[in-house]
């Protein structure tokens, strides 16, 4: 998928601002951002649900999004169904729209099996739990064996076991079904666990993009360490006198959090010792995607 200069305005408010994105075949791309950052709007623009004011989108090598959707499955926000129809009937509707023809029945059986809903396929969709609806949404998105999947907050509203099931399903789709996945989520630990690349959106603009490892590595230069000493007052005085570092608040077990920047930890230790502080602990805080995310969006 290639997106260049994608822009969408609502009146004077620019919701998506000159967005550039590239998703390679086989990527599991995490599309992150706080609420209102423009993630869903961007996904809707990319999929042709809403108009774009400017920019170019290419999906699976095609600029004709309608045609490209034949090889794309998507869940935007909470998937919706005709509640009075069974889960299977809802899938039959989608299969007819996709023109699956003779493949309809085996394909529906396959996707129902894939998401673990084969036993409940005849139940009315309105009787499904939220987790089942999410899975039925995935089943619908998987009809016709798409090459790319768009998932907008697929774990929203799910309980912990539902989240776990969904995460396993997504992971398995990426691993075993060779599907390129573009996923937006607030659950950063999950994104870190299943995505190889991420983009972080804030105020409609892409603020950071890269592999998860590279982003964490890049942020390591702005690392944080927790420093502990018997005399906390002396420690704080000494820290205040050292150039190139900033105190980032209280840490765990009475320690002080320090953003040490480019200063090597060994040198930080030496300076504290020189200042007469008896350092008891110097614990680097392990960086996560969440730390990177917070730094980008704040």
């Amino acid at each position: 998928m290639e997106v260049r200069g994608l822009t969408r305005r609502y009146g004077k408010h620019v919701v998506v601002d000159s967005l550039d994105l590239t998703v390679q075949v086989g990527d599991v791309y995490g599309f992150l951002g706080p609420n209102g950052a423009g993630k869903t709007t961007a996904m809707r623009c990319i999929l042709g649900l809403i108009r774009r004011d400017a920019g170019r989108v290419e999906l699976l090598g095609q600029a004709d999004i309608t045609r490209a959707r034949a090889q794309v499955g998507a869940i935007i926000e909470t998937p919706t169904f005709h509640g009075w129809m069974s889960g299977r009937a809802n899938l039959e509707q989608a299969a007819l729209l996709s023109g699956l023809g003779a493949q309809t029945k085996p394909e529906i059986d396959r996707v129902l099996e894939r998401v673990g809903l084969a036993d409940r396929a005849k139940d009315r969709a309105s009787n499904y739990s939220l987790g089942m609806r999410q899975r039925l949404g995935i089943a619908r998105a998987l009809l016709g064996r798409p090459k790319m999947l768009f998932l907008d907050e697929p774990t929203n509203g799910l309980d912990p076991s539902g989240m776990h099931e969904m995460r396993e399903l997504i992971r398995s789709l990426a691993l075993h079904d060779d599907i390129t996945i573009f996923i937006s989520s607030h659950l950063l630990a999950e994104v870190q666990a299943i995505c190889n690349r991420v983009g972080i959106l804030r105020d409609g603009k892409l603020r950071a993009e890269g592999t998860v490892a590279a982003l964490i590595e890049e942020a390591r230069g702005q690392g944080i360490v927790e420093v502990g000493a018997a005399d906390k007052a002396a420690l704080e005085r000494a820290l205040g006198a050292i150039d190139g570092i900033t105190v980032a608040g209280a840490g765990t077990a009475g320690r002080v959090r320090v953003r040490y920047g480019e200063l090597p930890l060994a040198q930080l230790n030496r300076r504290l010792l020189d200042a007469g502080v008896e350092v008891e602990a110097l614990v680097p805080v392990t960086r996560t995607l969440e730390d990177v995310f917070m730094e980008v969006v704040q």
């Binding site: 649900l49 309608t66 959707r69 794309v72 998507a74 935007i76 926000e77 919706t80 729209l97």
Partner: peptide
Amino acid sequence: ARTLREDMLRAVPRVAL
């Protein structure tokens, strides 16, 4: 009910739908 969105996510031209 936003079920129209689900139809639109298939490869169906708007005029045809």
